[in-house]
């Protein structure tokens, strides 16, 4: 599976990402960096510890990275999560994080199994 097929599998608009980042190699490099970071694990820990001030910043940073990568369905969930954290809405933040994590895991699984190991 190449980068284009990876994005097609996610039902994301590969052409608009390529339009912004110009080369598939660059997109691949950025995806590698993103999936090798532990920002999602850190965010989970911060939400569990109810450390919303820090979690808010982590969510903001994650949102930036995900939007650069053009994974819009994750951007949409993390934007809502960021708002919940800003408003100190613990229960909603937990629910939204769970949705975010499930979607992230699904994408991560596609990336590692279908792209990296092919």
């Amino acid at each position: 599976m190449n980068i284009k097929e990876f994005y097609n599998t996610l039902d994301e608009n590969y052409d608009s990402i390529l339009d912004r980042l110009i080369s598939p190699d660059r997109i691949e490099k950025y995806l590698n960096i993103f999936f090798n970071e532990n920002s999602v694990g850190n965010l989970k820990q911060q939400i569990e510890n109810k450390d919303f001030e820090i979690a808010k910043n982590t969510a903001h940073t994650l949102k930036g990275a995900i939007s650069t990568l053009g994974i819009d369905r994750l951007v949409s969930v993390i934007s809502k999560l960021q708002t919940a954290l800003e408003n100190n809405e613990a229960e909603q933040a937990n629910d939204l994080f769970q949705s975010f994590e499930e979607e992230y895991e699904r994408i991560f699984h596609i990336w590692t199994n279908a792209y990296i190991e092919s």
Partner: peptide, 15 residues
């Protein structure tokens, strides 16, 4: 503060 964004800018500079 985002290591991802630092990487992106640094990579773009190199390119």
């Amino acid at each position: 503060d985002s290591s991802f964004d630092r990487f992106v800018i640094s990579e773009m500079i190199d390119d």
